[in-house]
Design a protein around this nucleic acid. Structure first.
Length: 439
RNA sequence: GCCCUGGUGGUGUAGGGGCUAUCAUGUGGGCCUGUCGAGCCCGCGACUCGGGUUCAAAUCCCGGCCAGGGCGCCA
């Protein structure tokens, strides 16, 4: 009874139904958004992924069996509707459908776990528990349409720049890399971990001679952070390129961010409007602030900060007030950056590492890397890590490694800057945070 | 992990030692032939859990669980 037989195929999305189709018999598929039964006439709003159309049923003029079916409908049920398009100044889009046949694919239970029409707001926790309904709201699906456009632009951009898309393992053996906490898992009779970053693998691809690579993939971090900008599972856009330095890859990052903003602004007008987001296309090169300058700026805003410290949240906020939009933070102290970051030749206390910031939010970090085996081994030891645990990685530096540089861009954080959202959970379909593992 | 705040019908809320626990939305039924946040009538539906104080606890106290926010952590 509820099988999709060959006669039941969509002919139009609701947004494509207009006056030009007047008197034509069409088929739409969607969710029952609203039902207004006035007795002598019934209106049903049918919603699909791009819009809505009104079904209008004057009770005396349509088949009683069909009328009974319409009266049985409940909100958010999924139906197919066949009918004739009619022009009407009184209908929401100027057109409505007079039904000839209805197929009820699934009746929705009542009451609904939350209100998809947004008449009554729901809290984020309630929304995430019923994410499948939450995502039916245009203001929420807009976030993911923008995200899709962003990721598509990234792939097109790298393709045009002659990069190879790669896939590195997310099941990794070593917990000795230091830094962030990892999620341990059982790997047959061994212990393994979920990958925190493709860093070491994308560097090994430089030794392999792939020259320019990128990867868009999940990263996992077992930190017990509890903020609006951290997740335990996130999407990272990573790139690495040989015979380039930090300045070269900053240029690539700059161009990519601009390209994404241009495309989103051009192709996601409706979505940006729904989100009340006025995207500005940054002109030319992003501002560059050296770490030294940043320390001065932060201190001048009465947030105490010593040279050599990482930015506290207060320092980020102070900096974000002075620097609007996107900007690079460069010349970081070598001490607070990872072992693979190249120190400055003349002053090794400083490094060739940079961050890309958007106001007070770090969205990317990158660097020119150490490509000399002996120096790399030394720097691993300096960080208190055991170089022997990096055997597979270090080996790639022993038999011909070009100089190289790269960065990682947090896709979800980048999406926050495109959509104006304050909570990173909003930009992920099914976020994984400290407490949430379902749905 | 620390600090602050909170947890009341499906959803969002008001109340803050003793009344039939407020309102909106929803939901079930009824009326209505142009609704579009439809309207009107009738009904339905809730105090996070455990312990304590008290004649009396949704309300005060303690603890748990959960949530929101801030910070820390985040090679």
């Amino acid at each position: 009874m509820t099988r999709l037989s060959s006669e039941w195929r969509r002919t139009h999305y609701t947004k494509d139904v207009d006056e030009s189709l007047t008197d034509e018999e069409i088929t739409v598929m969607g969710w029952v958004h609203e039902i207004r039964d006035l007795g002598g006439i019934i209106f049903v709003l049918i919603r699909d992924r791009n819009g809505m159309i009104q079904l209008t049923a004057p009770s005396k003029e349509i088949d009683p069996e069909l009328l009974e079916k319409i009266r049985k409908l409940r909100k958010e049920s999924v139906i197919g509707l066949k009918g004739k398009v009619q022009e009407s100044g009184k209908a929401p889009n100027g057109v409505e459908i007079i039904p000839s046949e209805i197929k009820i694919f699934s009746l929705a239970n009542q009451p609904l776990p939350m209100d998809p029409t947004e008449k009554v707001k729901a809290e984020i926790d309630t929304r995430l528990d019923s994410r499948f309904i939450d995502l039916r709201k245009p203001s929420i699906s807009a976030i993911f349409k923008i995200k899709s456009k962003m990721l598509h632009t990234v792939r097109t951009f790298f393709e045009e720049e002659d990069f190879l898309e790669i896939n590195t393992p997310k099941l990794v053996a070593s917990a000795t890399e230091g830094g962030t906490e990892l999620f341990p898992i059982t790997y047959f009779e061994k212990e393994a971990f979920l990958g925190q970053s493709p860093q070491l693998y994308k560097q090994m691809m430089m030794s392999a001679g792939f020259d320019k690579v990128y990867e868009i993939a999940q990263i996992f971090r077992a930190e017990e952070h509890d903020t609006l900008r951290h997740l335990n599972e996130a999407i990272s856009i990573d790139m690495e390129a040989s015979f380039m330095d930090d300045v070269d890859v900053m240029k690539i990052l700059n161009d990519l961010v601009q390209k994404v903003i241009i495309n989103v602004k051009q192709d996601c007008k409706e979505e940006l409007k729904t989100l009340e987001m006025d995207l500005e296309i940054p002109e030319g090169h992003f501002d560059i602030v050296t770490y030294d300058d940043a320390v001065d700026i932060v201190n001048s805003k009465d947030v105490p900060m010593e040279w050599g410290e990482d930015l506290s949240r207060a320092a980020e906020k102070a900096l974000g007030k002075v620097m609007d939009g996107y900007y690079f933070l460069t010349e970081w102290p070598t001490e607070i950056k990872p072992f693979y970051v190249m120190p400055n030749e003349k002053n090794p206390v400083k490094s060739h590492a940079f961050d890309l910031m958007y106001k007070d939010l770090e969205i990317s970090s990158g660097a020119m890397r150490v490509h000399q085996h002996d120096l790399l081994r030394e720097k691993i030891a300096e960080k208190g890590l055991n170089p022997d645990a990096f055997g597979g990685y270090l080996k790639a530096f022993e038999y011909g490694m070009p100089p190289h540089a790269g960065w990682g861009l947090g896709a979800d954080r980048f999406n926050m800057t495109l959509t104006g959202l304050k909570n990173i959970r909003e930009t992920v379909l099914f976020p994984r945070d400290r407490r949430r593992l379902t749905p």
